[in-house]
Structure formats: C-alpha cells, structure tokens
Simulated assay, not measured.
Amino acid sequence: MLKDKMIKDMIVHGYAEETIRSYTTCMTLLTRHFQKSPIDLEPIDIYHFFLYLRLEKRADSSLIIFYSAFMLFYSLSGRKEMMQLVPLPKRKRTVVSVFNKTEIIRILSNCRTVWEKVLFTLLYSSGIRIGEVVKLKISHIDFERKAILIESGKGGHSRYALLADTTAILLKQYLEIYNPKSFLFFSHKGKDVAASVRSIQAAFQKIRKLSGIEKYGTVHTLRHSFATHLMEDGYGLIYIQKLLGHADIKTTLVYLHVCPSYLLHITSPLETISEIKMGIFENQGQHGLQFH
C-alpha cells in the first residue's frame, strides 16, 4: 500500500511520530476528496485541492503541513512537478496569546484535583509542549538536578527542561497519591496508557472558564506565557530558545512581539550620553523652547 510505503520511508528519513501521523492524515484527506489514489492525480488537482482548503478558511499553519506532506509524497514518488501550480504557503506573523501572572495564579488555584494541579503547574513552570508532557515517564524526572528530560521533543530532539522547586514538591506528593507505573500522567484506561492530549485540553478549558478568564487560550498558551514571563524577568533569548527546544532562534523571536514591557525596559542611547542631555537643557535655559 502507498500509505505503508510512505510511513516506512518517513521512518527511514528520521521523521517524528507526530509528523508521520500528520502527513499520512493529509494524504488520506486528499484521497477521500478526489476518491482516487494520489498517484492518479494531476498538478491541476492539487491546485484545486488547495483552493478548496483556502475557501474552507484553513489556517496557514495547516496549509503548510498539507504542502509539506504532498511535497514529500511526490518527491519520494519522483513526481515533484505535481506541486508546480501551488506556491508554498507563507505563515503570517501573529501575536500569540499570553496569560499574565495573575491569570496563571487563578488557573492553578482553580485546578479541581491533584492530577490537574501538578500537570498544569508542570506545563507552565517548564514550558514544555503538551505532546511532550504525555510522553513523560517517572524516570525522566531528575529531582536532584532539578531537570526534566524531554527524550524525544519536536523534530526528534532531546533536551532538558526546568523542574521548579514548587513543581518538584507537588510532584513528590503526586507520586505518593497516584503511584504511576510507567507514564507520569496516565489515562483512566490504565496506568500503562498515557493521558490523551484531548482530555488534557478539555480539562484546561473547564479550569479556564472556572477561573473567570475571558481571554481565549489553550494548554499551549501556558508555554507562551512561560517564555514571555522569562523574557519579562530579564532572561535572554538564547536561554529561552534552549529551554523551549527551538531549533531556530527565529521561532523564539516571536516573544519580542508579545512582550512590550521587555522592550520598554530598554534605555534609550540618549540617556547614556550626558553631554547631549546637558546641552539640551542648557539651550532650553538660554533660548527657551516654544511650542506651537
């Protein structure tokens, strides 16, 4: 089958599990749309499919995933020309949503169970992704070094995330109460089954509404808030990039656009040149300044 071959090729090329799942889903949707194999399509069909996606108001980020999936499939099939009529979708720069520190306190204060309290405290205090937290195992927590091992993050890269002291205390209580066996946050189906992303998102939305926060946000907003608050506290972009696991510093630069207070803390070069300031005020005293 074409799907099986594509999956095997992606595994050989080192693609992450989530990427493989996303790309194969894109190919399945393309097949269902035309009711024929992707091999039997023509460039004009791909053009019309992207037109359909645009008319459906799909987000640019979604279009990029479709484009990447199709480009990979047809490149592996030796038919790169299939994408010749479709331009590479460009991601529009958007200002990400961020919770302020007061809102974070309200969210964590309104968690209904120890499980929720520990989960969302860990997500905010470490800045890790929701897809990374569901993969966490007990062995990934290093209390002595105050670190969390992210064994296979986005792009298949491993890194260490912060384990805050408060989070560590909550985690130790959580381990005693819930006694997880494998996955740190397990499903109601059993301790050998990881909690689902969907269930975590649903729980978060209930807590957000319970906290009286009108601002829309998702679990990923906790990650944005983590990075923004670090920047507001004076930490540099390079450190934040490493903690977030961004391969490219350009991805981290988005937080400059959501952190006005960080920019407002910058001192104008005028304030550092005393001779210029003295000259300005001396001229004002001698000649006066008139405003019309």
Rank of each mutant, 00 (worst) to 15 (best):
M1S: 15
K3G: 00
D4N: 14
M6N: 07
M10C: 13
I11V: 15
G14D: 13
E17Y: 05
T19Y: 11
Y23P: 06
Y23L: 04
L29D: 11
R32W: 01
R32I: 03
R32H: 07
E42C: 03
D45E: 10
Y47K: 14
L51F: 07
E56I: 02
S61L: 13
L63M: 14
Y67R: 08
Y67Q: 04
S68E: 05
F73Y: 13
G78P: 02
E81V: 01
M83N: 01
L85Y: 08
K90V: 08
T94C: 05
V95R: 10
F99R: 09
T102S: 12
I107W: 06
R112M: 09
W115P: 00
T121W: 00
T121R: 00
L122R: 04
S125V: 06
I130A: 14
G131F: 08
V133K: 12
A147H: 07
I148G: 03
L149Y: 04
I150C: 09
E151W: 06
K154M: 03
A164S: 14
D165Y: 02
I169K: 11
K172P: 04
L175T: 07
L175G: 04
I177G: 02
K181A: 10
S182K: 15
F186W: 06
K189T: 01
G190F: 03
K191F: 06
A195E: 08
V197E: 09
R198W: 10
R198L: 02
K206I: 12
K206C: 06
R208I: 11
R208D: 06
K209I: 14
G212A: 12
G212Y: 14
K215E: 06
L222M: 05
A227Q: 09
L230T: 08
M231T: 05
E232A: 13
E232G: 12
D233E: 14
Y239H: 13
I240A: 07
L243V: 05
H246S: 08
A247E: 12
L253M: 14
V254K: 05
H265W: 01
T267I: 15
P269V: 09
T272N: 04
M278T: 09
I280P: 01
G288Y: 04
F291R: 06
H292L: 02
